[in-house]
Design a protein around this nucleic acid. Structure first.
Length: 556
RNA sequence: GCCCUUGUAGUUCAAUGGAUAGAACAGGGCUCUUCUAAGGCCUUGAUGUAGGUUCGAUUCCUACCGAGGGCACCA
């Protein structure tokens, strides 16, 4: 909570407590959940009443008496058991409305200015499906990247993809067997599950796939190389189409095939960190309260662990970042702890610059999804289903391009379902809910934005000049609007998009409620003030949706 | 067995140690001769169990119970 007014309040509170000779540490200042309890509130009097030796309410009264006037604050009240509530002045709130109307970057801050941050996310594997599980880190990573950008950082987006490994050999084995080496193959989707089944059920196939895996690594068979190159390109081009639908554009693409050799080199150079054990090169995490993991297997090939070391090095060479954050699945949390520790020891120059955050899994109510068995929903299929569900409404809407609007709504629906809940919690995917497009949803935010936008357009057509009138008393909508920059800051500081989603839902709901009660273009002098407010709402929702990585159509 | 994450209305999610635990969906009832009904208004309903710390615990600590994940050559 870094707004100037909030800081003023905190400083005044500190002075007041010091004046009463109380020992205190940080003063907590919060937004009361209920707007009737003010714009800011503190429980300091409750906290320090015991030390002061007087009743909380009495202490609160004393603190309030010694506060004096605070700029931007109209009223200070003692409430409940001893809370001190601060109510902002009309002029302070009016300033927020003005700023929201004038500043393109309304809601931004400079907490990370001058920092270069790399965000790695999505990470699908070529030769395997881009399934709905990949939508989770994509949505979260994109939003985190944007939150950093809005905090003043220079952000680089990176995608790390597994283009070598047994999974590739499994797919390629099927493709080779079917001799689909002709240029007409466009769909690799069936190959991986089939290859997996053969690998597990057919010993001969397993031997062949393992041999194929080695060929892919050492590039010793030109026919294999050719098909590999073709399949890899097909996969990557296909992913690119999906990123375009989702609104993500990566600056860097890293591949396991490149990270592997670099990782091997790093491991070999640090035998003190990576000892030999049972023919493999390992890291003993036990010394650090972790567990042992293999970095180079018996064949001397790099495991995922060693590749991660190589990746860190590649990232450093590509872009001189201050911090790199990797968005990855919960199931890799333990693995990452070990790799991070090993990395600190082997690459001390990167110490303190590497971070990771693990996201929850997308799960079905019925059971687990697995690309190995083919029991998956493809990312693009889900988007198409959602777009189909939106099509009827979109056709009746005011949008010029109903097709485009349908897809924008589909993206909003799925991203919102992911972004509305805390980062690391599993997401139970409910198809019906995702398709409903109503209530606590992405389209709800889009609809509120489109309404505000159209209203501002209409006011313009009628030549009504928006103008903030400070004599109009503040309402809940304005007071929530004032909180937007703090909501952004809060979400960015914890890299938690759902904190912003929470705020935006409450804000949009407040706007819809206000909209239902108030006639804006009513021909009265007050219309100018109301238009200004709607314009501020429009910008707030627009920037808020941008931060979530959700498109904000102007007509719905 | 050890480690990590996690238990909140019928369901899916919120709640920065604070005030009456909020939404949405589902159920029941209203609301389009007024700027978009993908909207608004009313209504039923919840903190796994037992302790502890605190002025105050959904939140922190301990134990137990339940769920998910990880623990040597997959990623």
């Amino acid at each position: 909570m870094n707004s100037l007014t909030a800081q003023n309040i905190q400083n005044k509170l500190k002075e007041a407590l010091a004046g009463l000779s109380l020992q205190f540490d940080a003063i907590s200042l919060e937004h009361p959940a209920d707007l009737k309890n003010g714009d800011y509130s503190t429980g300091a009097a409750l906290q320090y009443a015991k030390q002061a030796g007087i009743a909380p309410r009495t202490l609160a009264e004393k603190i309030v008496a010694s506060l004096g006037t605070i700029e931007g604050v109209a009223k200070v009240e003692v409430a409940g058991a001893g809370f001190i509530n601060f109510y902002l002045s009309s002029s302070e709130l009016a300033k927020a409305v003005e700023e929201a109307r004038k500043e393109d970057m309304w809601g931004s801050n400079s907490n990370l200015s001058g920092k270069k941050i790399m965000v790695e996310y999505t990470d699908p594997n070529p030769f395997k499906e881009f399934h709905i599980g990949h939508l989770v880190p994509n949505a979260l990573g994109e939003s985190v990247a944007r939150l950093f950008q809005f905090s003043g950082a220079t952000v680089k987006r990176a995608n790390y993809q597994g283009d070598v490994g047994v999974h590739v050999a499994k797919s390629l084995f099927i493709l080779l067997e079917k001799r689909v080496t002709d240029p007409t193959i466009t769909d690799l989707s069936a190959a991986y599950p089939e290859g997996s089944e053969r690998y597990e059920g057919d010993p001969d196939a397993k031997t062949a796939i393992d041999a194929l895996n080695k060929k892919i690594y050492d590039k010793s068979d030109s026919q294999v190389d050719a098909l590999y190159a073709k399949g890899r390109k097909l996969s990557l081009d296909h992913f690119e189409e999906i990123y375009k639908m989702l609104g993500t554009k990566f600056d860097y693409y890293f591949f396991e095939s490149e990270a592997g050799p670099i990782g091997v080199k790093i491991v070999r150079e640090h035998p003190e960190v990576f000892p030999l054990s049972e023919g493999a090169v390992i890291f003993r995490g036990e010394e650090y309260g972790l567990h042992t993991r293999v970095f180079l297997n018996k064949q001397g090939l790099p495991t995922y662990e060693a590749k991660e070391l190589g990746l860190a090095k590649m990232k450093e060479d590509a872009c001189n970042f201050d911090i790199t954050i990797t968005i990855t699945g919960n199931e890799q949390a333990e693995y990452f702890k070990v790799v991070m520790k090993a990395m600190e020891l082997a690459l001390p120059e990167l110490r303190g610059k590497l971070a990771y955050k693990t996201n929850g899994m997308l799960r079905f109510a019925e059971g687990k999804m697995s690309s190995r068995t083919g029991n998956i929903i493809r990312g693009e299929d889900l988007l198409k289903d959602l777009a189909d569900a939106a099509k009827t409404r979109a056709a009746e809407s005011r949008a010029d391009d109903a097709e485009k609007l349908s897809m924008e709504i589909a993206v909003a629906a799925i991203k919102y379902q992911i972004l509305k809940q805390a980062f690391s919690k599993d997401i139970i995917f409910d198809r019906e809910r995702a398709l409903s497009l109503e209530g606590d949803s992405g389209p709800y935010l889009q609809y509120a934005h489109a309404r505000a936008h159209q209203l501002v357009e209409k006011a313009r057509e009628q030549h009504i000049d928006a103008k903030v009138d400070q004599s109009v008393g503040p309402n809940d909508l304005v007071r929530l609007l004032h909180r937007f920059p703090e909501a952004v800051e809060y979400a960015a500081s914890l890299s938690e998009p759902h904190l912003l989603t929470n705020y935006l839902l409450e804000f949009a709901s407040s706007f819809n409620s206000w909209y239902a009660q108030v006639h804006v273009l009513d021909g009265t002098p007050e219309a100018a003030h109301k238009v200004a407010l709607v314009d501020a709402v429009r910008r707030t929702l627009k920037n808020g949706l941008w931060l979530l990585g959700i498109p904000a159509p102007e007509r719905m």
